[in-house]
Amino acid sequence: MDSSILPRTDKRQKLRQGLLALIGQHPAGARLPTERELSERFEVARETLRHCLRELEDEGVLHRRQGAGTFVSAQPVVKEARLMSFSEEMRQRGLVPSSRLLSCTTVQAGAKLAHRLMVMPGSAVIEIRRLRLASQEPMALETSYLAADRVPGFDPAVLEQGSLYELLEQRWGLQLRGARQQIEATVLSREEAEQLGVPPFFPALVIERTSTSTTGEVIEFAKSLYRADRYRFEINVSR
């Protein structure tokens, strides 16, 4: 059938499939051909093309810059509801995980933190702040808290390229069994946005996680800020 006499819905579906196939051939950040070139390639009217491009932009597949063109967006990492370290997640998706240690200090647990870690108020707690990267791209800001007496001789330098969970298991025999997480929407402060390489007040996901060992002992309390454009959480539910 001549494409000029296809029903409108079929024509738009064919255009969408063609655009997605074209996008799949380009890396994140690549510039697509002009609207004139695309309309000629797919044999559609400019208005039909613009409608489809707007839909793909709303879905986060594309982004347009005024006067510059249409570009392929970096696709978000899908985070499943499984207890994995950031390093494990990135490796599973073919990305190279790394961390930039922002600070590591020993603090006294206040009432709230002591409750989270199941320790006495005033107990020594190690606070680790890291910038998490995937293939050198900033992805998240993470602050982890560990009861100091559970990890004697802790050296934060080994976390630059390694996983905290792997270190806990290999060095201290602390094998994690599960975690309780709370997820909320937020926006980044100017300092947080600068560290993550995005504009101030950029949307983000804040996740608080309390992790327990196979013996039921609380091992870690963590608070993480994930870039909302690079993370999507996926939860499977059943009835």
Rank of each mutant, 00 (worst) to 15 (best):
R31S: 06
R132V: 01
S211M: 10
L159A: 08
G24T: 08
P152Y: 11
Q25A: 01
F86A: 01
F71N: 03
E137A: 15
S85R: 07
S238F: 11
Q170M: 03
V78Y: 11
Q75W: 02
L20K: 06
L168A: 03
R230V: 03
P33T: 00
E59C: 03
P121E: 11
V77P: 00
Y226C: 00
P33I: 00
E192W: 05
P156R: 10
T210Q: 15
G18K: 04
S99I: 02
A28W: 05
R46I: 09
A28D: 03
E217S: 12
E217N: 11
A185H: 14
A140I: 00
H26W: 03
S73R: 15
A204I: 08
R129P: 01
F221Q: 08
S189Q: 14
Q161S: 13
R209S: 11
W172F: 06
K79S: 08
R93V: 03
V61M: 11
Q195F: 10
E55K: 13
L62A: 05
R232M: 11
E208T: 09
S123N: 10
V151Q: 08
S135I: 08
L38K: 04
R65Y: 02
G197A: 12
R100S: 10
R232N: 09
L159Y: 11
S135W: 03
E184S: 13
S163M: 09
A222Q: 07
D10V: 13
L32H: 09
H26T: 00
E137H: 15
L101K: 05
E35C: 10
R239I: 09
L22S: 03
A179C: 12
E166K: 12
P156L: 09
A21E: 15
A124V: 01
E191T: 13
V125M: 06
L20E: 15
L6A: 10
Q181W: 04
F201K: 15
S224V: 13
A45M: 06
R54N: 15
V151L: 12
M1T: 11
L38S: 03
C104R: 00
L62D: 09
S211W: 00
E142Y: 04
R171A: 09
P76F: 04
A134S: 14
I126Y: 07
Q108H: 14
G162C: 04
D2S: 08
T48G: 10
F202I: 01
T70A: 02
V77G: 01
V78T: 14
T186Q: 10
S123I: 09
K223A: 10
R64K: 14
I207Y: 01
S99E: 11
A157M: 11
T186V: 04
T210G: 02
F233N: 06
R100I: 12
L164G: 03
Y165K: 01
T48N: 10
L32P: 07
A204E: 05
Q181S: 14
Q136A: 13
F221P: 01
V119A: 10
G29W: 05
E80M: 08
K11I: 00
N236V: 11
A193L: 08
R132F: 02
M1L: 11
I23F: 07
